Computed example of a mutant assay.
Amino acid sequence: MKAIINGRIITASQVLENKVLVFDEQIGEIVAADAFKPGEDFEIIDAAGHYVSPGFIDIHIHGCGGYDTMDEDPTALGKIAALLPQVGVTSFLPTTMTMHLPRIQSALQRIRAAKKAKGNGAVILGAHLEGPYLSPQYKGAQDSAFIKTPDFFDIEDYLDVIRIVTLAPEGADKHDFIQRCRAAQITVSIGHSNANYEQALAAFAAGAEHVTHTFNAMPPLNHRQPGIIGAALDTPAVTCELIVDDVHVHPCLQRMLLKLKGPDHVILISDAMRACLLANGHYDLGGQDVIVSDGEARLASGVIAGSVTTLRSAARLLEKNTQLSLPELIRTVSLTPARRIGVAGSKGSLEIGKDADITIFSSDFTIQATFVAGKSVYRS
Rank of each mutant, 00 (worst) to 15 (best):
D157N: 05
L159D: 01
I147D: 05
P132V: 07
G121T: 11
V161S: 10
D176F: 07
Q137E: 15
L159E: 02
F146Y: 14
Q142C: 15
H128T: 13
P169F: 04
I147E: 15
A168F: 09
V123L: 02
F153G: 02
P150I: 03
G131C: 13
A183D: 09
H128C: 14
K148H: 06
Q142E: 15
V123P: 04
Q179C: 08
S144Q: 15
V161N: 04
L125P: 12
A145W: 09
D143Q: 01
Y158W: 08
K174R: 12
A145M: 05
F152Q: 01
G126I: 02
R163Q: 12
Q142A: 13
I155M: 04
A172D: 12
L125D: 08
Q137L: 14
V123S: 10
I124A: 14
H128L: 14
I162K: 07
L167T: 10
P132T: 06
K174I: 10
I155R: 06
R180T: 05
K139A: 15
V165A: 02
I178Y: 07
H175T: 12
G140P: 07
I147H: 10
I178L: 08
G171S: 15
C181R: 07
I162Y: 02
D143F: 00
K174W: 04
T166F: 05
I155N: 00
I147A: 14
G126K: 00
D157C: 01
R180H: 12
I178G: 11
T149I: 09
Y138I: 01
Q179E: 11
D157G: 07
T149N: 13
D157M: 04
K174E: 06
K139I: 03
G126R: 06
T149W: 15
F153T: 10
L159A: 00
L125G: 01
N120S: 12
S144D: 15
P150S: 10
K118V: 04
G140D: 14
G131T: 05
F153R: 13
G119I: 04
V165I: 11
R182Y: 08
C181T: 05
F146M: 03
Y138R: 09
C181D: 14
N120V: 00
R163E: 12
D151H: 00
T166S: 07
I124C: 12
K118D: 14
D151G: 11
Q179L: 08
D160W: 14
V161D: 12
R182D: 10
S144A: 11
H175I: 01
H128Y: 15
V165S: 07
I162E: 08
E170N: 11
L134H: 14
D157K: 01
A183N: 05
F153M: 12
T149H: 13
D176Q: 11
A141G: 00
Q137P: 08
E170V: 03
A172H: 02
L159N: 02
L134P: 13
I147K: 06
L134W: 15
H175V: 04
K174D: 10
H175G: 12
G171H: 11
E156A: 03
A122P: 01
L167N: 04
K148M: 11
C181G: 14
L159G: 04
V123I: 08
C181P: 09
N120I: 00
G126C: 07
F152E: 03
A145G: 02
F146P: 04
F152N: 06
A127V: 06
I162P: 05
K174S: 12
P132Q: 06
L125Q: 13
R163N: 06
K118R: 03
V161L: 09
D160N: 09
G119S: 06
A168W: 08
D151A: 04
